[in-house]
Amino acid sequence: MRNRPIVAAAFAAMASAAHAADVIRDPAAGWDYLWYEVLVDISILGIAFALITAFFVIRYRRRAENEVGKAGRLTAAAAVGWTVIPMFVFMADDFFLAANGWQLWNTYRQPPANRIEIKLESGMYSWDYTYPNGVQTQNVLKVPAGKPVLLRMTSRDTIHSHFIPDFRVKEDSMPGRVTYLWFYPQKPGEHIVTCAEYCGIMHSYMIGKVVVVPEAEFTAWYEQEERKLAGGAGQPKKAGA
C-alpha cells in the first residue's frame, strides 16, 4: 500500500518520458542519422562495383594482339540467376531505404501539437512572417528555444523555397497554395534562411535568418511587440502589410 504512490509516480514519469520522446522527434537529427546510414549503404555498393571492375580491368588486360575474350554463352539457369538474384538484392535495399525514408518523412510531415505556428508570405525578395498575435517581421524569424516551429507558407508572386540548411528542411512557397514545414530549434543561436527555388533576378540575395532565443527573452519580445500593436505605440516592423 505504502508503495503505491511511488510506483504510480514511477509509471507516470516513464510514461511522460516515453510521451515526450514520442512527441518531439527532431527531424534534423533524424536527417543526419538517415544520411549517414544511406552514405554507408551506397559506399559499400560503390566500392564493391569499383573493386570488381578494377580487378577485371587488370586481370583481363590484353596480352597478345590477336587474343579475344573467352566468355561463353550463359546457361539458361545462370542467365536467370544473374537476373533474379541482383534484382532481389537491389529490391531488398530499396525497400529497406524506402521504409527508413518513410519513417523520417512522417516525422517531417507531422508537426508536434505544442508548436508555435507562424504564417509566411514570400515575395520578391523577402520573407514576411506573421505571428499568431499579429506581430509581423521581415527576414528575421525570432523563435523560442525548445519549441517546435511550424510555418504555413504561401507566396504573393513567384515560387520561392524557404530553406534552413541548419535544420535540414525546405519547402516551396507558391501563389494559390498553402504549404508547410516545421523544425525544432533547441538551442539559442542564429541560422541562415536562403531561397532555394529560382525566383527572379535577385534570387541569390533572398536571405533571412532564424534567431533562436531563450524562451523568457522570446516571451518578453513577443509581448512587447504585441503591446506596440495593440496600443498603436509603434508600427509593426514591416510597414504597410
Binding site: I52, F56, Y60, R61, R62, G69, A71, P86, D93, A98
Partner: peptide, 28 residues
C-alpha cells in the same frame, strides 16, 4: 519514392551487364 528507388533494378542490370562484359575479356 518507391518507384524511383526501384529504378535501381533495371539500371543495376545495365551496369552489371557492362561490368560482366569485362569478365574473361581481352581488354585494351
Amino acid at each position: 519514392m518507391v518507384t524511383t528507388l526501384l529504378i535501381s533494378v533495371p539500371v543495376g542490370f545495365t551496369v552489371i551487364g557492362l561490368v560482366g562484359t569485362l569478365y574473361k575479356g581481352s581488354i585494351s
